[in-house]
Design a protein around this nucleic acid. Structure first.
Lengths: 230, 230
DNA sequence: CGTGTCATTGATTAGTCTCAAAGACAGTGG
DNA sequence: CCACTGTCTTTGAGACTAATCAATGACACG
């Protein structure tokens, strides 16, 4: 999307400072005061919440290019805990930067809002998967979503990608157990939908999986036509 | 939240036109071009998506005061279908009204964004319920959420409210079946958590239910301190 | 070489679904 | 006022998906 030089500079300013974190580290916790947002420079992370008895739900997987923490802007305290999957580099920036963008650049505001709303729509799709899909469908949906997401920032990706999450983490994301994730992955392989090698996953029957899960690539459907011209 | 007269007028303008719809009517469908947003004047409605084989997931229940369709603003086409639960009065307004608000009023922009983000956070809570809670916990969570939501616009509400949805609709919202909703409601009654009479529900053990579901009232936790002053 | 994490496997159990039928009730037309 | 209809809720039996528990295997790391 075309942006003015001024807006480009405003965006660049969000990534001014950066910090790296090792694998498996918690960066902030649910209930913490809500100070910063983060841009992901590289590495995967995820946000999750636990029930008091330890049941865990991962609510969002963060990839390079994502903005972390947008939904929490509306609230005083963070609602989720942020944890790295692997070595990660993040650019923290204060909530108040949004204030400036809202005041100075309607066009950039619209862009950031659209990204947040697109994440909302994707979350609705995840909800549908959790509420109404079998384990096999849920895993297929997740793989398709990851593929679509990763294709945004990596144009030449075709059908193979790295999935650095453990099966327990995938289970916590899809509302299943690690054991059943294992069994269902094996079944997907046996039935020729995917291949796995180390942490690489290859999608063999993308169109069948799209049909199976009624998948929509929300990342490709965005509408920027209504944006204000600066 | 204090607003300038100008902003109040901008808000009022969104509710300029209104239309009523009978119970059980579809107002727009998933895939339709994305033209309007709606403010709910009175009555309940919900947004849902179907899988091709007919499985349905209700993704959001709309109450008086809600803005319908915000997440879809980012996309060209509506992702959900909107259906009334009962007689409903809606105020449609065009997507382009947002453009004007973004350009003219940073403060009102921040307010609308915050409402959208709060809905996002609530959806995360729903996702957690769907992924990791039993049927009994899910129903309890839903009732607490409805109560918290209805208390915003009706200050004197205590522990009783009207629940006009059928058990099949509740099932489609919670990712269960109508039969199991019936059985679980009966169990909640038998165990003294709730009472039902017609479409009225009374919450008898609110604090136990809050504990059971680790419920947070997101509507009460909003942070407006970072808003730009107009 | 020992330790720990992660993935796989198998046996059993539990929670929810499916199917089918009956009951409760509101609305309709005679 | 009554029978009829349709929708919604309740009930029960049986089936099935996914969870639980426990053990083994595979691998990386110190």
């Amino acid at each position: 999307m075309p942006l003015s030089d001024l807006d480009k500079e405003r965006l660049a300013r969000l990534e001014k400072s950066e910090r790296t974190f090792p694998a498996g580290q918690e960066i902030y916790q649910g209930g913490d005061e809500n100070r910063n947002l983060y841009v992901v420079k590289h590495g995967w992370a995820f946000s999750y919440t636990d029930l008091p008895d330890g049941r865990r739900q991962i609510v969002k997987i963060h990839h390079p290019g994502d903005i972390i923490g947008f939904p929490d802007v509306a609230l005083k305290h963070a609602t989720t805990t942020l944890r790295t999957v692997e070595n990660v580099c993040l650019c923290p920036f204060p909530k108040s930067s949004l204030d400036e963008i809202l005041r100075k650049s309607p066009r950039l505001s619209a862009l950031l809002i659209s990204i947040a709303l697109r994440d909302h729509v994707v979350l609705i799709d995840v909800l549908r998967a959790m509420g109404r899909m079998s384990a096999q469908e849920r895993i297929s949906y997740m793989l398709l979503d990851l593929l679509a997401r990763l294709r945004i920032t990596n144009r030449r990706m075709t059908d193979t990608f790295r999935l650095p999450m453990t099966q327990s983490q995938i289970a916590d994301y899809l509302g299943l157990t690690n054991v059943y994730i294992s069994k269902t992955f094996l079944r997907l392989e046996r039935e020729g939908f995917i291949q796995r090698d180390q942490d690489q996953v290859r999608i063999l029957k993308e169109s069948e999986m799209i049909e199976l899960t009624d998948f929509h690539d929300r990342y490709a459907e965005m509408d920027t036509s209504w944006f204000p011209q600066d």
